[in-house]
C-alpha cells in the first residue's frame, strides 16, 4: 500500500497536475482572503472565506482524482496493481490518501493567510480560534468526501475527461442542492435535498461548534464511496 501511495503522490509532481493544483489553490485562497478579510477590515469574516473556498473544490478536487483510476485502467497498469499482493482495499485507500495528503498539505499552507489575521486583527478581538479550527476541520472533511466521490467516478471510466466532467457536475450538485430546497414544496424532496447538501452540515462548524453528527456524515461519505469503488473493481473481476 505504501508503494502505491508513494507512486501516486509522486505522479502528481511528474505531471503538471500537482503544481497546477497547489498554485491555483493558493492563489485563489490568497485572493479570497484579501477580499473577505483584509479589504474590509471592519469584519474579519473567516466563515465566508471558507464558503468561497469550498466552491473552488468544484474544479480543483476533480483535477486530483480524474486520472487516479481511469488512467491506470486505460494504460493497463492496473493489472500490475491488481495482481500484486496488495489488497483491493489497500490499493483504493492508497489512491485516496495520496490525493488527500496533497489536498490537506495545500490547505495547511494556505492557512498561512491567517497569520495576518492574528498579527493585526487579534488586538481588535476579531479572531476566534475555535471558529477557525472548526472551519479547517470541516473543510478537510468536505475535501475528503469530494475526493472519495471523485475516485469513485474515476473508477467507472477509462477516460479522464469524462471522469472530470462527471465529478464536476456531481460536486456542483452537492454544493447547490441545499439552495433549491427552499423552492420545493414537497417535504420529502426538500428533506432529501437538505440531506445531500454539503452546506447544511457545514453551518455548525462555522459557529465553532464541534458537531459530531456532521463529522460522522462526512466520514461516512468517504467510507461509502471508497467502499463502492472497491465494489466496482470486485464486480468487474467477477462479471
Amino acid at each position: 500500500m505504501g508503494a502505491i501511495f508513494k507512486r501516486e503522490f509522486y505522479a502528481y509532481f511528474i505531471s503538471p497536475v500537482g503544481y497546477i493544483f497547489i498554485t491555483v489553490f493558493l492563489l485563489v485562497a490568497g485572493g479570497l482572503f484579501y477580499l473577505t478579510n483584509i479589504s474590509s477590515p471592519a469584519q474579519a469574516d473567516i466563515t465566508s472565506y471558507f464558503m468561497f473556498i469550498i466552491f473552488t473544490f468544484i474544479v480543483l478536487i476533480p483535477l486530483l482524482t480524474m486520472r487516479s483510476l481511469s488512467e491506470e485502467r486505460k494504460t493497463k497498469t492496473e493489472q500490475m496493481l491488481l495482481t500484486s499482493p496488495v489488497s483491493l482495499t489497500g490499493i483504493i485507500f492508497a489512491k485516496f490518501l495520496a490525493a488527500f495528503v496533497l489536498f490537506a498539505g495545500t490547505l495547511f499552507i494556505s492557512c498561512l493567510n491567517f497569520y495576518v489575521l492574528y498579527e493585526f486583527a487579534a488586538t481588535a478581538g476579531q479572531t476566534n480560534t475555535a471558529v477557525l479550527i472548526g472551519n479547517v476541520i470541516s473543510i478537510l472533511l468536505i475535501g475528503a468526501a469530494f475526493i472519495s466521490i471523485g475516485l469513485f467516478i474515476s473508477a467507472m471510466t477509462e477516460n479522464q475527461l469524462t471522469a472530470a466532467i462527471i465529478s464536476i457536475t456531481t460536486i456542483l450538485f452537492l454544493l447547490i442542492s441545499g439552495a433549491f430546497s427552499g423552492a420545493v414544496n414537497n417535504t420529502f424532496i426538500r428533506y432529501a435535498l437538505d440531506f445531500v447538501s454539503i452546506f447544511s452540515r457545514f453551518q455548525a462548524f462555522t459557529y465553532g461548534i464541534f458537531d459530531i453528527s456532521s463529522v460522522v456524515y462526512y466520514a461516512s461519505i468517504v467510507v461509502i464511496f471508497l467502499f463502492l469503488t472497491v465494489r466496482i473493481y470486485e464486480m468487474r473481476r467477477w462479471q
Binding site: R7, A11, I14, S15, T75, K76, T77, E78, Q79, M80, T83, S84, P85, V86, S87
Partner: peptide
C-alpha cells in the same frame, strides 16, 4: 488466499503494465 498466491507469481500481461512517466 490471494496475497499469498500472488507473492509466488511474476506476471507479464499482454500489454506490459508500464508507467511511462517513470
Amino acid at each position: 488466499n490471494p496475497s499469498e498466491a500472488k507473492k509466488r507469481i511474476g506476471f507479464l500481461p499482454e500489454q506490459p503494465p508500464l508507467y511511462l512517466d517513470m
